[in-house]
């Protein structure tokens, strides 16, 4: 490196800044660490692979997912044109899986993300302050939990219509309470630690302590919860689609394809099995990567490995 002439001027500043951030970044450290984790590598490749396929679906997909242009019920591998066969209407399953993945991933990750952020904030505030704040917030969470989400789904869909946003909203409301409870439980344990007292002692305010001292200590459980619930959200979306409460019927999603194939499971197994496999592989990938992330965020555990 030393023989290279150093860059000058503004460009140099940018390069230096990027280098410092790259070298110092904690977040990058954690991500880098997951690349040495075997489960992490597998999970990362799976998730990124599926995400890329979904993003580039228009380029990758050999057929229009809606086009009814083939013979129905072709089994996978029977023709070169439809490598994963066709469904009951003669639509190309491979193309539909690619397009369906877009919706399923957005809903799974989006809904869980919203629930994780809102739920964790409620849980942390509730656990940190305790007392009346805790009572009020947790009763609110209990009320959310007691509300049958299916009724909520019917209500929201019939008022606002079918859309991805509304499906995300329904699923996230159903999961907020889980994140709030996990968050609160973690905070109740962390709150009693001496380093919280030490943080108060250096004059930090409540907001700084909650977000800067408490939260970094509970990232692990939240990530695990996130990976589990992403998988569940994809399945819940399929249940909603099945009941006609999901995204519009024309848009393929994995859950909807699975529901469609259910009728022909004895004669044409691949129509139901293939979207099911897609769900399994995706959730497995997310879970594996989640494990790796949890391990690398738990600085103590990585050392003991």
């Amino acid at each position: 490196m030393s023989h290279e002439k150093p860059p000058t001027g503004r460009f140099q500043g940018v390069v230096q800044y990027t280098q410092t951030v790259w070298n110092d970044s904690i977040a990058l450290d954690r991500i880098r660490e997951t690349t040495t984790h075997r489960k992490g590598q597998l999970g990362f490749l799976t998730v990124v692979g599926i995400a890329l396929l979904a993003v580039f679906a228009p380029i990758v997909a050999p057929h229009d997912p809606q086009a009814i242009d083939g013979t129905p019920f072709i089994a996978p591998g029977m023709t070169g044109e439809h490598i994963l066969g066709t469904d009951s209407y003669g639509r190309d399953i491979f193309s539909r899986l690619l397009y369906g993945g877009r919706i399923s991933l957005v809903i799974g990750i989006g809904a869980t993300g919203v629930a994780a952020v809102v739920g964790t904030i409620i849980g942390v505030i509730s656990g940190y302050y305790g007392g009346l704040v805790d009572d009020v917030l947790m009763r609110f969470i209990d009320a959310l939990w007691a509300l049958p989400w299916l009724v909520l789904a019917i209500l929201i869909i019939s008022i606002f219509g079918r859309s991805i946003t509304n499906v995300i909203l329904i699923i996230s409301i159903a999961y907020i309470d889980d994140f709030a409870r996990i968050g609160r439980g973690e905070v109740l344990a962390i709150r009693e630690e001496e380093y919280i007292l030490a943080a108060k002692n250096i004059g930090l305010g409540d907001l700084s302590i909650m977000s800067g001292t408490v939260l970094p200590n509970m990232v692990g459980p939240i990530i695990v919860q996130f990976t589990i619930f992403t998988a569940r959200a994809i399945l819940v979306e399929s249940a909603l689609s099945f009941l006609g409460l999901g995204v519009s019927p024309a848009t393929p999603t994995w859950g909807m394809m699975l529901g469609d194939g259910r009728d022909y499971i004895m004669d044409a197994w691949h129509i139901a099995i293939l979207p099911g496999l897609a769900i399994v592989i995706t959730t497995l990938g997310i879970n594996l990567y989640g494990d790796a992330l949890r391990d690398s965020f738990d600085v103590k555990q990585t050392r003991e490995d």
């Binding site: 380093y195 030490a198 108060k200 970094p216």
Partner: peptide, 23 residues
């Protein structure tokens, strides 16, 4: 809070629990 942060410092009994483990 101002005084705690700037004029009085405290050293706690157990060094292994008074430092934030994740920072």
């Amino acid at each position: 809070r101002q005084i705690r942060g700037s004029k009085m410092g405290m050293i706690f009994q157990n060094p292994s629990t008074s430092l934030n483990p994740v920072l």
